[in-house]
Design a protein around this nucleic acid. Structure first.
Lengths: 331, 331
DNA sequence: TCCTACAGTAAAAACGATTTGATTAGAGGC
DNA sequence: GCCTCTAATCAAATCGTTTTTACTGTAGGA
């Protein structure tokens, strides 16, 4: 259990600890010969900088937090991949935490992140009530991911979910959908609510009654989609279904097929997110595509800019536009 | 940007910093009245322990690292969910890093984790050559995940991939498979190699020539599966295909179907991992099921036991057994 | 030749917690 | 009444960096 500190490197290289630190952090301040000697010692002794000590003194760490709603959803792992790519390029480590849509768990995770003194936080809030101000007061930069900020002093990267919802439902209507059902997770999740609003907008614009058959599930998984399908089968099938994400849609699709429902003939079905697996289902799934990895990359870049250039940084609320991807599951 | 330290809590409560620390770490050492006063001050001032300072002095942090091969593979997110569950219960944060099967990237990530002074590391090594000893010498506990340790001084949690490979191929043979193809990622990845060995074992046991049509792809994604399918279509189809994971299998399945190949009649296809989406494909995918979340949970428990009870901890190499799940894609 | 400027380095003071050894005040035994 | 023992608290040292200040020697300008 060898523990090599900067002090031993210094002694080994015949310089002071401060000089070693300079080699590490402002190499241009150190004469080339000295620098070489120090680097040699570092390599020889296998020195690895102690991040805790470093961030204690420097006042900030080289880690950022990423809090997502569902780590099991390919949408979020795609986002995470984008984040990781940018962060790791800049030497930041990413602490991933999964709120699983549960605000208690989210709170607990945020406390842990605060203790770790992450430099910044990327978060898809589990609910509108998520408290971020206390973090920001502690000097932790925050960027909202897949969630637009409603204030100008906060960065956010999102995709227009109202537009996406409208896109989905107007596509369903164009296929002759009459009675449209909306299947989603809790409407306290903004994404769900916005997609519903978009759906209603599309109905209104088509001169229809904005009333939707609504099925709300506790989670947004394939299993929940299956249960929603069972409910619809029991209550009477609509002729078009809009699921708030692809996991729900895939669960529903499988269950309806098993029940002998033909798609898109009997029911027209569309999901949201356009995850990879959407195109690999028995009846390939129409969906609303989002620039997922891009979302993660942009968010990370915004966050690191805010961290590294607090002076010049200007807060931005970036909103991407979703796109309709038509496959076999819709008419 | 208020920064509340233990010192201010101490002043506010009229005690010394050491006492506050005791309240936090050994509450039984502090008189109940004092304890109450300190807790009140902590709440009132919104104090949050500075993890870096704490781990600097204490010599270890409350974080563990988790290094996986492909964050985009539901298999690994399932593992991660299991790990996160256990870690978060015990107040540990998980730093997730994705080697993407690239050893250079893995090295870089491990360095970052070493700098963060993670308490322990859960890792699915990108290759057999991954060097872990330098980490362990630094006092970082290591547990291998989805990879059996070949030494008794190291914990590991794995699933018997040789048995799994054999299971898959003997099932293919029982369906009348004659010419069997094996599609996998680089054979430097142990999982791939072991599954291949298992496949050959099954052939031998059935009295066949252990020769396999082998297609090796650089990554183990659905896209790679598609490319492998194109290769097979060009070179002449075997009548049975064993893919080293479900992503490959799903990509292959889709591509073969598009090419008009009937499954399982023309080709019998089996994957590995039994991810959720395996049952949601056009022709539902037979696969080899692994206790995935369990893998993550067990690994995390082993790791935290080693961290917290270095005295009594005994290293274990745990090996789970895989199970065959038969669906429509095989005869 | 002297002074200034500057580059390069060292010494020392932080950062915020934990931990050790010392100190105090009561309680109890004789 | 004195001594010992224990419980509760405090003061100070410490973890490994970074950063500021101070120092040295050499080069260039007058």
């Amino acid at each position: 259990m060898t523990v090599v500190s900067i002090k031993e490197v210094a002694r080994h290289a015949g310089v002071s600890p401060g000089t070693v630190s300079n080699v590490l952090n402002r190499p241009e301040k150190v004469a080339a010969a000295t620098r070489g000697r120090v680097h040699a010692s570092i390599r020889e002794l296998g020195f690895v900088r102690h991040g805790s000590a470093s961030s204690l003194r420097a006042g900030h760490s080289r880690t950022i937090g990423l809090s997502v709603i569902d780590i099991g959803n390919p949408f979020f792992t795609d986002v995470a991949a984008g984040v990781e790519e940018v962060a790791s390029d800049r030497g930041y480590a990413v602490i991933l935490s999964n709120s699983a849509g549960d605000q208690t768990k989210e709170d607990r995770n945020l406390l842990t992140l605060a203790e770790q003194r992450v430099r910044g936080l990327l978060i898809t809030p589990a609910a509108e009530t998520t408290r971020l101000d206390s973090l920001r007061q502690r000097g932790i930069c925050v960027v909202l991911v897949d969630h637009p900020a409603d204030r100008s002093d906060l960065c956010s990267v999102a995709v227009n979910d109202v537009a996406g919802g409208a896109l989905a439902v107007s596509h369903l209507l164009s296929g002759g959908g009459d009675r449209v059902a909306f299947v989603s997770g809790p409407l306290t999740i903004r994404q769900c609510l916005d997609r519903k609003l978009g759906a209603q907008q599309a109905l209104l614009r088509a001169g229809r009654d904005p009333g939707l058959v609504e099925v709300v599930t506790p989670t947004m998984t394939a299993r929940a989609g299956q249960q929603a399908a069972e409910r619809l089968l029991a209550d009477g099938l609509p002729d078009a279904v809009f699921c708030a994400n692809d996991l729900l849609a895939l669960g529903m699709l499988r269950t309806l097929l098993q029940a002998g429902v033909r798609m898109p003939d009997d029911v027209s079905l569309i999901g949201y997110d356009d995850i990879d697996f959407a195109s690999a289902s028995p009846v390939s799934l129409s969906s609303i595509r989002q620039p997922t990895q891009q979302l993660g990359r942009t968010a990370a870049e915004l966050l690191l800019d805010e961290c590294d250039n607090p002076g010049t940084h200007t807060h931005q609320q970036i909103m991407f536009q979703p796109e309709l991807t038509v496959r076999e599951s819709t008419r």
